[in-house]
Design a binder for these strands. Structure first.
Lengths: 257, 257
DNA sequence: CGTGCCAGGTGCCAT
DNA sequence: ATGGCACTTGGCACG
């Protein structure tokens, strides 16, 4: 970590340009207004905010409350910096879609550049992908005798989460949800079934921790089955075994065939 | 704006606790690892990051790249601060769902508290709501002679965006999309039509700037019509008139009747 | 409070 | 590039 703080007297524009040139991350705190034009359009009146300008050309404007940024521009944006009389202008533009974010400062309370080294690995568990992996390795988690033929089977409208055979040899199409299975999930499964020859030809199974409120009736109407699957249970299966380490990622890698 | 920077020697824990007690926003830059457990679970190995701790009890961890935070906890979280030997611990817990975020610092490059005053008004334009407002005020934008009977008509599965009559007096159900109308939107409209007596009884119209890729065929299959509506055109209608200022919001406010 | 739907959604990976 | 889809989705409005 290397720090850069030229002080405000040295100039907002100088510091900011230096940081951007050197691909440093800049932390700004100041009183500003924000105007955004692009897919939509927004205005934010003057107030105190925190602004992050990152090495990759992204910018995020945070109010002193709330989880979400009030305005932003994604990585790859191009910055323009200007001093306009008493005010400082920071503009971030991206193309495709053409969007522009303009931050106008009346006061800058803090500006500081940092060279941050962050190569730490991030890993997320208990995702739908992990559920799919677990069910591929231990299909019994879905039902005894179930065999996975293909995870991510492509069908005309999209991708089936799991495709396999039950112990009687019938084809099974599985729609997997990490959260409660809702109406859209069920309708999606139904579409897949239709494109695979209809209900007579394949079994339709919704695998999820539970069903959403209105989903039960829809399930029955469409003649689909619900199988309870616990995401944490799936994650545990993966972490408790070491078969995952290599063999699974390879196996899952073949799903595109 | 009031600034608080006691310096590191004064103690990470002291400063942080003071800031949280006084409901200040804290900016932190340091080398840390992050562990999250809750709906899912994640680990982030050591690296340099920026942490925002806001007045409302939210915390956001940013890597030096990317638009999205790598870890976070929403407003209302409860913080626990501890010094563990050479390391500093910042833990944010929320209930419902029960989730915990733990940031462990080995180095703190900067820590600073700010009392930020931000009452600036934020407004976003050209939302789906504004399109609906525009079409309600100028139904001709949809098609000549169209009349809106009710925005947001409630039907068993949900709410119809616009409900009205065409110039021949036929009932029209409109599904409105600010972006390209996709399959789910079309299926949704179809559900509404079924619950209103089926295709013979009402016209089904998808109003959007354009159709998503595979949507055309589905539209035809279901016997629905597509009407191009330009969000910018809608915005112009709203901005070029001042009828919006009060009267419309009141009118729209009655939609729940 | 749960439930449903929108978002400047974003991100990831597929063809 | 575009399409399909998950996300610790978050957010809001409504029953």
């Amino acid at each position: 970590m290397e720090r850069l703080n030229l002080g405000l007297e040295n100039g907002f524009t100088t510091l900011l340009k230096t940081c951007l040139d050197q691909k440093k991350t800049v932390l700004l705190v100041g009183r500003c207004k924000v105007d955004y034009v692009g897919r939509a359009r927004s205005t934010l009146e003057y107030g105190d905010r925190i602004i992050l300008v990152k090495e990759d050309g992204s910018i995020i404007v945070h109010r002193p409350y709330g989880y979400q940024p009030v305005n932003w521009q994604p990585p790859g944006s191009v910055f323009h910096i200007k001093k306009m009389g008493e005010r400082y202008l920071l503009k971030a533009v991206r193309r495709k879609p053409q969007e522009s974010l303009e931050v106008t400062f009346t006061h800058i309370y803090m500006i500081q550049g940092f060279s941050l080294k962050d190569e730490g690995k991030f890993s997320l568990h208990v995702t739908e992908l992990e559920m799919k992996e677990a069910l591929t390795l231990k299909p019994d988690l879905l039902e005894p005798g179930f065999k996975v033929l293909r995870p991510e089977k492509p069908v005309p409208p999209g991708f089936v989460d799991l495709y396999g055979l039950d112990k009687e040899g019938r084809r099974v199409v599985v729609e997997l949800k990490r959260n409660a299975a809702d109406r859209p999930a069920i309708l999606q499964l139904y579409k897949y079934i239709e494109s695979l020859g209809g209900r007579g030809a394949v079994r339709g199974v919704v695998a999820a921790p539970c069903l959403a409120k209105g989903a039960q009736r829809l399930m029955e109407q469409m003649g689909l089955e619900f199988k309870r699957v616990d995401p944490k249970e799936c994650a545990k299966v993966l972490s408790s075994t070491d078969w995952r380490t290599r063999s699974l990622s390879e196996y899952m890698g073949e799903r595109t065939v």
